[in-house]
Amino acid sequence: MYKLGRGNRDKVQQFMTITGASEKVALQALKASDWHLEGAFDFFYSQPQISAVNTRHLEDIFNRYKEPDADMIMVEGISQLCNDLQVDPQDIVMLVISWHMKAATMCEFTRQEFIGGLQSIGVDSIEKFRAKLPSLRAEIKDDNKFREIYNFAFTWAREKGQKSLSLETAIGMWQLLFAERNWPLLDHWCQFLQVRHNKAISRDTWAQLLEFVKSIDPQLSNYDDEGAWPYLIDEFVEYLTENGLVQRTK
């Protein structure tokens, strides 16, 4: 899977002999510590679950939720899972979980995604999983993780085979994501899209909106009309000022 130099390969071997961890875990830990063995051990032992997860348990959990006639967890399995975890399927924590699972599509987990996800979260039972929810939910607060989750959401939520995200889904996702962030212009943005745009959202617009939300203050005082903001965001700014929704201060 990875092309490794001899030195690095030795380190992986060494790591595996000492910790008894799988090659995957070894790689993960070594990469996280920039190929310093000492650092990798620290990383490894600070996340004790990594090693503790028993793949057998994980298979069992997966089998509990999977579709009878496919090797996948689909809508029903997910709602069952939500039930067991005692969360609303609309809860943003489900997005975070999907992100950990690196799920390719909304409402679907492949075996590999699911088991890999649980491993990376570090749980091997529903109880542990449920106990883990608060800390998963807290990951949203982390700026870097939020950005990753935000960008992940685009690919995750779009229809198979589509390049862009349908407007309806996009708005739903934005409402979900930005509810956490308290973006004051969120309602205007959603309304603007429905009134003026009514088309799918491109990845670029999606990604740039986060930058907009993060860097532009709600009075738009630091908005550069000549800048490279996507066309749609330009229009939005125009819409806000035209309709007197924001008094621009320059």
């Binding site: 862009s164 670029d204 740039q208 930058e211 800048g227 490279a228 330009d234």
Partner: peptide, 27 residues
Amino acid sequence: FKAIKKRIEDLITRDYLERDKDNANMY
């Protein structure tokens, strides 16, 4: 200008261009 911007975005979508990771003003 708007037309150009639209075309740039379209080219981004069609993978002819991408934005610089650190500077959204660079293509």
